[in-house]
Computed example of a mutant assay.
Amino acid sequence: MDHAVHSSGWKAIWDSGGWWRAVLLTVLYMAFYLGGSLLVGAAAGDQIVAEDILRTPQSVFFSLMLPLIIGSAVLAAFVYSVGWFKPLFAPQPVKGSWWMWAAPFFLVAAIVLRFLGINYGSYQASVALLTLLTGLLIGFAEEILTRGIVVKMLRDSGKSEWVVMVLSSLVFALLHSANAISGLPILTVLLTVVFTFGFGICMYLTLRVTGNLIWPVILHALYDPTLFLSTGGIDQAASGPQSPFALMAGPANIVYMIIAVVALILVRGRSQRAPLAEPVLR
């Protein structure tokens, strides 16, 4: 009885939604993720090749994969505790417009081109495999948080879809400002934040037009590792000669920003809860 009351109270806190709860949860997630990164660095820092994270499988595991395992476990525990796995992966309550298909189309195109453009001979097979597996964790953690939990909380509080899109993408972009802690140049971090805001909008459009969170998770899970492997690093431009396929994927960043600007102009709608019914589009 007491446990049921406690669980119901905990769930009620988060079921109320709202932007500040979404931000609070994001901050808590980042605290666990960054705290885990610091602990891993202190315990296994000698295994991490800071100047080239993709040089060894140990470096990939301890610098990228293990902190994401910690963060993903925390998010999964939270979602389970409030009973949101089913609603997060339920069909979207707001349908997408035809033009939104541009977002997943160009995402898939870039993924395919980068897969073809990776110089696999420059990596150990275990490095490439671990990087791809790390992508699954990135897709799960970042999409569950920003296109899942944050979007749900904003919709539950009655926000318009334009606000949902902008705030969830802004939260996603600000997650990447934490890269400054790793020593990346401030200009690189700022450019990354701007790009990830546009990328976040494209993932929101993908959520809308595909109708289910699983598709942004999958596309994100493939996008990041193919980007890392095709450029040879994290959040950096490729150095040295690239394959024609990787070069063809280069303009994708500009395309995402254009799609984001179009979305800022065209996105409309609101997800509202009818009494004792599922949300409907108005």
Rank of each mutant, 00 (worst) to 15 (best):
V27A: 11
V23W: 00
T146A: 06
L28Y: 03
G18M: 07
L222W: 01
I111P: 02
S8L: 12
V261Q: 04
S8R: 15
V127D: 04
F62N: 07
A246F: 08
D235C: 04
H176Q: 11
L68S: 10
V262I: 15
L68M: 11
N253C: 15
L190N: 09
L190V: 13
R208T: 03
T231C: 09
T188I: 12
G158S: 05
F62T: 02
A141K: 13
A178K: 05
I201Q: 01
V27F: 09
E142P: 09
F85Y: 08
M65Y: 08
Y29D: 11
A4N: 10
S16E: 14
L133P: 02
L229C: 03
L129E: 00
H6E: 15
L229H: 02
L136Y: 00
A125T: 15
M1R: 14
V217Y: 01
G240S: 02
V163L: 10
H176M: 01
Q236A: 12
K95D: 12
L24Q: 00
A277L: 13
L227Q: 14
R270F: 00
P185W: 13
L25W: 14
P185D: 08
I144N: 12
A73G: 11
A76T: 07
R208H: 08
M165T: 14
Y256W: 15
G232E: 08
V23R: 02
A103Q: 06
Q236W: 06
E51F: 05
A90N: 07
I254L: 14
L68E: 12
L66K: 04
V280K: 08
G183S: 05
S72C: 10
V108G: 00
A274H: 11
F89M: 07
L207R: 12
S63E: 06
P275L: 10
Y120L: 14
S97T: 11
R147M: 08
Y204R: 10
A90V: 03
P275I: 10
D2S: 14
R114M: 12
V267K: 04
N179W: 08
G269D: 05
L266T: 09
V193L: 04
A263Q: 08
A263K: 02
W215G: 06
L222F: 09
S271C: 05
V163E: 09
F199S: 07
V193K: 06
Y80G: 08
D156A: 15
T134E: 11
G200N: 06
A128R: 07
Q236M: 13
P93W: 03
A274E: 13
I201S: 01
W14F: 15
S126C: 00
R155V: 02
S72P: 06
A102L: 14
Q242P: 05
A22H: 00
G269H: 10
G17N: 07
L154G: 05
M165D: 06
T134H: 15
I53A: 06
F245A: 12
R114H: 03
A125I: 13
E161M: 14
G17I: 06
N179V: 10
G211Q: 05
M203L: 14
Y256Q: 08
V49A: 08
V108Q: 04
A50W: 01
G71V: 05
P216E: 10
A180V: 15
R282K: 13
S168M: 08
G148R: 03
